[in-house]
């Protein structure tokens, strides 16, 4: 007997159910995205009084602008470092917090609550901590013999941003890693404990592979965070300074579009950003997800 494919008779009812979602996606994603693509080919005065089609000129200008190239590289390095460090730190903390016997809950709460701080608020807090006149950490670095000047030294400014961005992101990763660790069956861990004495070896051969789906998901989330959500931190802490060294691509879109009123260039930049994120996500799914076993 061959299995007959059961075909359910249906009219428009199912479409009606997904319609609200489709409308939301169309209005809040596809329409603005299409608008951005359209604007990226136009040269328009700020007030929208006159506009003309200029083809790829906005893009060509960006690619010939060395400061855009620098911003591109900074964004990649920054995102890579923030993701890597915050993932590694969170994993370490989750593994340790998972094996703590006493006051486990307190540890978890303490490691999680930073998550509730909004990026802009975190940035403001950090502004005071790193302020050269009243900042505690700034003072500490200087006492240790590091002339810490985030307002004039690109390295110090990047260091400060990465530190705060990581601090802000560790709790999210921590929660997911902790949940992932707790879903690993006890029996499996105990069996491994009998076969292998070394903690680290057990971690890399048993625990980490079992955490791979969580880690992969977090990698995608973290890169997106570093790309987009660090805007609030940058705006309150460095404004892309000094010498434009901490200007991420997203911050540059804001500077040129919102502060400088050059909508054509700003739209072209956001289209490039859109493509970049699509490519990055595609790469992640294509090459990394293959190695992940659910």
């Amino acid at each position: 007997m061959t299995a007959q494919k059961q075909k359910l008779p249906h009219g428009i009812t199912p479409y009606l159910f997904i319609l609200p979602q489709l409308v939301i996606i169309a209005v809040f994603f596809f329409w603005p995205a299409a608008q951005a693509v359209h604007m990226s080919f136009m040269l328009e005065d700020p007030w929208g009084l006159a506009s003309q089609f200029v083809g790829f000129e906005n893009y060509a200008l960006l690619f010939s602008d060395s400061s855009y190239g620098r911003s591109f590289i900074f964004t990649l390095v920054f995102s890579f470092l923030v993701s890597l460090i915050s993932l590694a730190l969170a994993l370490l903390l989750a593994v340790k917090a998972n094996s703590v016997l006493r006051a486990q809950k307190s540890y978890r709460v303490l490691l999680t609550w930073v998550y509730a701080v909004a990026p802009a608020v975190a940035g403001l807090g950090a502004y005071f901590i790193f302020n050269r006149q009243i900042g505690v950490l700034s003072q500490a670095f200087n006492d240790m013999g590091w002339a810490f000047n985030p307002e004039t030294d690109p390295f110090d400014a990047s260091f400060m941003l990465i530190l705060v961005a990581v601090w802000k992101q560790v709790p999210v990763n921590f929660i997911f890693f902790l949940a992932g660790l707790q879903s690993i069956p006890k029996s499996l861990q105990e069996a491994a404990q009998i076969d292998c004495q070394s903690d680290s070896k057990r971690f890399f051969t048993i625990t980490f592979p079992l955490l791979a789906p969580t880690s992969f998901f977090l990698l995608v989330i973290n890169l997106t965070y570093a790309f987009f959500e660090t805007f609030g931190l940058i705006d309150t802490l460095t404004q892309g300074r000094p010498a434009g060294a901490t200007t991420t691509l997203v911050y540059k879109v804001y500077q040129d579009g919102f502060l400088g009123a050059d909508l054509g260039s700003s739209s072209a930049q956001s289209v490039i950003l859109m493509i970049l994120v699509l490519v990055l996500t595609a790469i992640q799914f294509r090459f990394i997800e293959r190695r992940v076993h659910y």
């Binding site: 004039t152 690109p154 300074r241 000094p242 010498a243 434009g244 500077q255 400088g260 050059d262």
Partner: peptide, 16 residues
């Protein structure tokens, strides 16, 4: 506004 941004940037570089 953008030109001022470039002036700031170059001043940072000059001072460094």
């Amino acid at each position: 506004v953008q030109t001022r941004e470039v002036i700031y940037r170059e001043m940072d570089k000059l001072m460094a």
